[in-house]
Every structure is written in C-alpha cells, then in structure tokens.
Write a protein that binds this DNA or RNA. Structure first.
Ligand SMILES: [Zn+2]
Ligand SMILES: [Zn+2]
Ligand SMILES: [Zn+2]
Ligand SMILES: [Zn+2]
Lengths: 528, 528
DNA sequence: TAAGGTCAAGGTTAGC
DNA sequence: GCTAACCTTGACCTTA
C-alpha cells in the first residue's frame, strides 16, 4: 500500500519532470532514428519511427511494461484481442486473444477460480485495466466464446477449420463491432412452433407455472440480465405470491442468512456471491421450493432468494460456456456450411472403423465434460455421493444429447468427431439404428425450434441432470434442485420474453422433455 | 486483498471437499465408460479408461498452485544469492538472487533511493545482516551485476542464455568463492600499449594533467576505492595544488554549502550524498573547474569538492551498472566463446533482412538506454533543454560505441541483436561499409587495450556525452561538466594505479578520443 | 499453429 | 515503514 503510493508519487513526479521534455522526446526520437541511420543505412527506418516514439514514451514514462514491444511490421495478423484489445497472437481457446488473456483464461479454468467483481460487474476490460478485475475479465473471455472445449477445433481438418475461422474473423474483426449483446444471445435457428403434448414423468410437472409466476422478482429483472439486456421488459403483474410464509424453525442458520443478505448485499454483490450461496445451498433450495410449491407462504427474505436465483443462473451460464463452448464454434461452422449449401461432409467416404475410432476418442472428452460440469454445478453437493454416481451413470446420454442438439439441423447432423470426421445422420443411422436416430432428430428439431437464448440453454443441463430417477436414494433432494433450476429458467425467460411467450416456451420445453425417457429406453434396448 | 483471501479459503475448502470423493471418482469413471458403451458399442473402450481416469483426476486435482514450497528436495537449483548467500530463487535482474535482494533492488531502482553507509562502506553482506546497511547491500547488488538492463536476457536465445548462466554458475557456485573484488575489475583484455598521438578537438585537452595532479585528495584515496581496493597505493607527492583560491563572491549559497560539508559530513556521508550535491551541482562544478583550471587558487572547502568528486564517480558507476549492465553478461558470453574457440556465430547464415530486423528492434532500446542514462547523469540538469536535445541527437552513436566497444575483440564483434543474432564484423561490414568498421575496430582495440576498470569505464560515458559541440548554445557549461568528469576519472585512476600509470592511461585515453570526431564524420557521410 | 510450459517480472500483504 | 514469501502475469519457448 505504501509502496503503491510511493510508486505513484514517484511516477507522477517522473511524469511531471518529463512532461516538459515529453514533446521534445518525440522530436528527439524522430531525429534519433534519423541519426541512427548510420548504424543501419535503412530506408525503411522512417516507417518505424512512430512506433519507436511510442515505445520510448512508454519506456521513459511510467510503467506499462507489458507491451510486446518489439517491432511487428504488419499490423497484427490476428487483429486485436477480443477481450482486452491488445495485440492478438492467435486463436486461443477458440477466440483471437493476446498472450495475457490466453494465460489468464487457462489459469482460471485450470484452478477453477471463483472471481468476484468489486465494482458492480460492469467493468469494461481494456489492455491497461485488464488486471484490475478478474471477474469481469473472465466473463469477457466467456462472453467472447473462449472455451476449453474449443480446443477440439484443433483436430478439425484444415479446410473446415479455416472456413470456420474465417467466418469468425469476418464476424468480429471489422472495426471491432463490439456490441456485447449481439454476440451472445440467440444462436439457435428461428421459428417457434407449438407442439403436441406428452405427459412427462421425469421432468417435474408439478411446478405450477401459475404459482411461480411473478412480480415476485419483477422489480429486479432490469438488473438481472447478464450483460445481454432484454429488449422487451414484460410487465407481469398478473400473478403475485402471498406475503406470509412460515419458515421451518429447524433451520437455525436462517437468521444469519437473512442478516447477510440485506439490502446492501443486494446492491453490492449483484451476481456472483458464490461463497455465500455455496455454503447453505440446501437451505436456499428448501426455502425456494417452499416458495415455488406453496406460494401462499412468503418470506421476508425475498432478496436472499433473488440473489440465489441469480447465482444459479449466472453460475450455470458460466459453466456452460466454460465446458461446452465448443458448440458455439461448431454451430458457426454449421451455419457457414448451410449457407454455402455444402452437402458433402468430412467422413462421408471414410470407413466405419474411422468413425468408430472417432467415437471412441470422443468418449473421454464427453465423460470429462459431463463430470466437470456436474461437479461444479451449484447445489450438486446436496446430492449424496451414491446418487451422484448414479446420475453420472444414467444421465450421460441426456447430457450429450442436449449438448449436441443444436448441431442437428434440417435432418442433418453437424456433430464432429475428434478425428475431424463428421458424425452425419448417415453414420448415426449406421451406428445407432434408424429408429433411435429418428427419435433423436425429432427431439432435436423441437428443441431447436424453442429458439432458446444461451442463458436459457445453459439451464437445461442441470434440469436434465437432476431428474427424479427411481433408482436414486433421495429423489426428493434431486427433485428440489430441479425445481429451483426450472424456476431459474422461467425467470431467465422473463428477462427476454413477454410473459405469454415465456409461458409458452416453458410449457413446450416441458413437453419436449417427454422425449427423454423414450430415448433412454431405446438406448437401454440397444445395450441389451 | 480480500479477493485473495477469499480465493484461498475457497480453494482450500474445495480441495477438502473433493478429497473424499476422489477415490470414488475412479469407480465412477470406470462405470461410466461402461455406461457410454451404449453410444458406441465399442469393445476397445476398456483401453482408454486409464487415460480417462487420469484426466479426471487432473481435472479434479486439488491445488498444486505453482509453489515449489511444499516439496523441494533438491537444495537450491539456483545456488545461493550472490548478494547475501540466502537461497536464490531465480535469476533476478540478471543475477541469481533471493527474493529479498530481488525486491530490495527493485525498490531501490524504482525509487531511485540514495543510501548512505554509516560503517565506512565496508559492510560484508550476508543473510542475517543484509538489512543492516542498505547502502552496502545495494552496492553489492550492483557489484554482482544486477541491472534493469539485465532483463533483456529474456530476449537472448536460449542457447546463449544457458551458456551465460552456466558460466555464471560455474564462476560462483562452487562453495561461493566470494572474493568481491575479483568479479568486478579488469574484464578487458590485458596489455597496455602506447599509441600515436592525435589532436582532439572534442575532448578538452586543456585539462592540464599537471594541474589536476594531486596529493590534492591524496589522503582520501584509501577510502575512495569503491569496494575494489587498489593493490598499489601510490605516493603522489610530486604535484600539489596551491592553497588559496578566491571564490567568485556572486555565489551566495557558498556559505551554506560550506556549513553543510563540514568535517562530520565528510565522515558520515562518505560516498553518496546525492541529496546534497544534486541541488547545487552548478556551484560545485564551477568551483571544481576553477580549481582544476586555475590551480593557483585554492579554497578551504576541499572536503566539499572531494565529496562532490566522489559523488560523481559513485553515481556514474551506479548508473552505468544499472542501465548498461547487459554488457557484462555479453562479455561473459564473449569470453566463454573465445575460450571455446567458437568461430561460428548465430546469424552467420541468416538473411540480411533478419539482421536488419534485429538492428531495427535494437534502436528503441539503445535510445531508451541513452536517454535514461543521460537524464540521471549528475550535472545534466545544468544543461538547458535545447542543448540536451541536441546532445541526445548527436551523441547517440558515441554512446552506443562506448557501450559496445568491450564486445569487440580480436577483429570480431560479439554485439548481440535483440533477435538473438550476432552483429558480427562480417555483418557490420555489410551494413556500415568496411572503412567505417575498420576505424571502429581500431578505436575499440585501442580503447580495450587501456584495460580500464569498471569504475573508470563508467566515467567515459559522461565524458563522451558532454562534448563541446559547436552546435550547442552553451558550450561552456557542457565543457565544464566534462572537465569535472575528466578530473573524476583521473582521480579514479589514481585509486588503482600508480601515478605514472594513471597519467599514461589518461593521456592515451585522450588520444583515443580523437577517433570519435573521425567516426562521427564517417557516419555523417554515410547519412548523406 | 495453438496447446501447454517456463520463469522472471511485478504485485500483494503477512509480519516485523 | 520496510522486508520478503507468496502470488499472478505474460513474453517467450517447446511440443505435437
Ligand atoms: Zn487480451
Ligand atoms: Zn468487474
Ligand atoms: Zn539475497
Ligand atoms: Zn555499509
């Protein structure tokens, strides 16, 4: 602290001292480069004199040591870092970034860092301040599409990769059209249709939409929008939860929680109070479930539950971006190929052995993905180990399906195998059998037609994971967790949709989930 | 601050939490891979389960956040701190040092600290007493070669860096033969020859050696020796400056100065009273010049001027070490290559474009170096801004030449470019033309033959910088500054040489300086 | 070429 | 106030 102050004094003093000389420095520099020409006899030296001047003023002036100072002739082959605008050195984790952001993202993922913003989650990241707020830097990384999963691009054959990358460049390198909201939301194909209703025994249908409807949190929706503000703010005054809720008195720590989640907390810690919530998740869930299922009872600690919902949504979104980010790039590839009306795909003429090899390679990644996601999923620790293991065993396919559904379009699959071959419908038929594939494609079609935003899509994963499976010891807890996520999803929908639309989409979604038990059944049969 | 604490808490909690799950994970993984078979129908799956398990455990894996702290088996990979013998943690600022000395050096440089030794400048630094005397600790740092310039090691290709480091290790890691005087002095090749005389219109020849000869300061020479005590202490009673000097009475602040520089000051502030001298440099210069040029007049304040001379010498030495420290490492490299009779150099087969690129890259560094050095040089503030800029423009080549002359040996140049290529004589011929190079090499050869100590070498820079150039507005001031430095150099020489030797070396040096206008001319021609 | 690794910068913050 | 252990950063390097 003192040191910092002194440093500041110092650099300020130095700056002042140099200030009068500063302009002269430019002059000196320019003349210097001319002077040095003797050493160099270079006719191109004039070209670098500006750069040089800049460097000197850096060197002479205060700090700023980071800059990759040496000369670089051509502007930058990769453009600017999508995160901080520094010079990009390549496509790292799927996004053109500088070395710093690459390393930062790598470390963040590696160590599963939990950051927190002390400035209200609105920091604008640039080269100079990028180390000021890790939280916002990391979120910018995610927002720009960085993902550990994106490394799988590296295995995609060159032609396709280039095409995908070119696409990426095209979409973002022109003057850096840095509208943050445009890059995240709505990457599913448009068109919203209603669908036939199916009863669903896996996804809880006892979540009464009427009951979880709001104004409950309505005055917060403006600030809840995760950096991609909704264009439409619905006025949803039709439903109101009742005011008095009796809390089970066995929850001793309730008072503490209430004292923690006071108004100032609401104001300061807007989105990611992971430390607070990860500790007493069970309490929050129970209270939230009570609120959802028994809307008659209400509590004074609405803020607390509001924060908890926010936490679930944000954390899930981040998790999804971090561990499932590849989908975005593969979707860009898909879009690009559809636009170019490409009908031939890598692997069309490969041997079935190659496809098998690709599938075999893919397993560890999907398993790892699933487990990593599940492990970090908020509330997962409330599930006991035995049940957790059962879920890991039983829900992998569902997870895989949700993850890849967006890559199914127009009766074709754009799923890629790690060896660069495309797992086309043709190959899926060959491997899984036509019946199974047809059901899957129908599911995917309906799912994509919902046109979920990225934030909504992310919440599907926990909902699918936390299914009240009869094999589980403690079905109730799992179910409660699912309730919370369903509720979170619904509130998320309300941030970008009218209430009517949200309800429709939500109901349709529940109906689509009815496919899952069927698909699971088909799968089981194939094993047998 | 809070963030770090929170993170630590958090990660520790996470680690503990996961620990119990860890073994079960293996189990889960195995079962999972079996489960996934449904997707794949693959019989080879068992093969990958190990890899998979490993991946998961990595992903799960607890902390391992860098620190070598926990298990460090091997003593210290970097040996002992060259400054204090503590455990070295890396090569900091070019020298293997501990964290403490690294931080201390950083703080000292950053804040341009002026320290003072209260124990006679002879403190022996070790781990226990290193905080006893900052002055001696800082000088030990410099003596060992720490230098902000040394950070440029990072740019030197690995091969060379390793060689340099190995060399460094070799020379000091064997039981730490820590003779401080052996590592600093005399790194130029031996052999002292006389040379033909040239008139020199740039370096003041009106500094009468006879006049500045001493006993003037002779009783001080013992303590003036800057940690590398002279082996021979000459008795130099032949020349004596006169006793009475009339001071120009317009200097009002003289009395203050005298009162400051009393006997106790002389005793306490032996070497680096930067604060005192940096304020009234002009006064000191004038008085010193009067004394040098008009030895008839003497003053009572000899001590003051003695201190001023010391200040010039010490400060210049420190400056040189701080900002030109890379030369030492490059010289170690050179020596090593000469010993190994290496005749092939990096860049021998490079394209001329690569050499150009390296030269182009080098400019900003040399410019920065020059400016930084000049800015901090004592007495530089007496030169007005316009003249300062002119000097910056006109003396860069001389500065560069003096800086690199020690890297020229036996008709070969060991100058390195930032891109790791060696700027060999062959390339210099190609770039500068043979005539110029030949003159430069002759200059360098004669210069190196002087076999200057590091302390003497450092003083060459200000002498070369403060040249009575006809373009300058105020030639006199510049000239006076040069006189002071010349005088400082001569007194410096007397600390390690007999008077006769000092005179010879000094005269030879003045003659060698005669090359500079010639070289500058050649340079100008090339520009034209 | 983009992962991942390296390691010396600089920053942080106990502890004195 | 400074010291120094510990930590994060990012330019450069190695690997595949
Ligand atoms: Zn960046
Ligand atoms: Zn922030
Ligand atoms: Zn040390
Ligand atoms: Zn001392």
């Amino acid at each position: 602290m003192n040191e910092v102050i002194i440093n500041n004094d110092h650099s300020r003093a130095a700056a002042c001292e140099n200030q009068s000389m500063f302009d002269d420095d430019h002059y000196v520099q320019k003349r210097k480069s001319r002077r040095v020409r003797t050493l160099l006899k270079s006719p191109v030296i004039e070209l670098i004199s500006d750069e040089q001047t800049e460097q000197i003023s850096n060197a002479t002036g205060a700090r700023r040591n980071s800059t990759n100072s040496s000369s670089d002739k051509r502007p930058f082959p990769f453009g600017h870092c999508r995160v901080c605008m520094d010079k990009a050195t390549g496509a790292h984790y799927g996004v053109p970034t500088c070395e710093g952001c690459k390393g930062f993202f790598k470390r963040s993922i590696l160590r599963k860092e939990k950051y927190r913003c002390y400035f209200g989650d609105g920091c604008v990241i640039n080269t100079d301040n990028r180390n000021r707020c890790k939280s916002c830097r990391f979120h910018k990384c995610l927002k720009e599409g960085m993902s550990v999963d994106g490394v799988r691009m590296g295995r995609i054959p060159k032609l396709i990769k280039e095409k995908a990358l070119a696409e990426h460049h095209l979409s973002s390198s022109s003057i850096e059209n840095d509208d943050p909201s445009s890059s995240v939301a709505s990457s599913s194909p448009p068109c919203l249709s209603s669908m036939n209703s199916n009863s669903n025994n896996l996804i809880s249908t006892d979540v009464n939409l009427q009951l979880i409807d709001e104004h409950f949190f309505s005055d917060d929706f403006e600030s809840i929008s995760m950096d991609t503000p909704p264009t439409i703010l619905p006025s949803c005054n039709d439903y109101m939860l009742s005011e008095d809720l009796t809390i089970d008195e066995t929850k001793n720590d309730l008072k503490e929680n209430i004292s923690i989640s006071n108004r100032s907390l609401l104001n300061n810690c807007t989105e990611n109070c992971g430390e607070t919530f990860s500790k007493n998740v069970l309490e929050h869930i129970k209270k939230l479930v009570i609120k959802i299922l028994h809307p008659r009872f209400n509590t004074v600690s609405d803020q607390e539950q509001l924060l908890f919902i926010r936490y679930l949504r944000r954390k899930t979104f981040d998790l999804c971006n971090t561990y499932n980010g590849c989908t975005r790039q593969l979707m860009e590839r898909m879009t690009s190929m559809i636009n170019q009306q490409i009908k031939e795909f890598p692997g069309d003429y490969s041997s079935v052995q190659d496809i098998w090899a690709g599938l075999t390679d893919a397993i560890p990644f999907h398993v790892k993905n699933f487990i990593t996601f599940a492990r970090e999923m908020p509330a997962i620790n409330e599930i006991d180990l035995d049940d957790f293991n059962k879920i890991m065993n039983n829900r992998l396919f569902d997870f895989w399906l949700i993850k890849h559904a967006p890559l199914i379009h127009n009766n074709e699959s754009y799923i890629m195998l790690p060896n660069g071959l495309q797992y086309t419908r043709q190959w899926m038929n060959h491997i899984m059998g036509e019946k199974m594939v047809e059901t899957m494609f129908e599911f995917a079609r309906k799912f994509n037609e919902l046109n979920l935003t990225q934030e909504e899509y992310a919440l599907i994963f926990p909902i699918v994971i936390c299914v009240k499976d009869k094999n589980l010891n403690d079905q109730e807890t799992v179910h409660h967790i699912q309730c919370c996520y369903l509720y979170s999803l619904y509130t998320q929908m309300l941030t970008t949709r009218t209430q009517l639309e949200a309800k429709t989409v939500f109901r349709n979604l529940l109906q689509i989930f009815a496919f899952l038990p069927l698909l699971n059944e088909l799968q089981e049969k194939q094993v047998g």
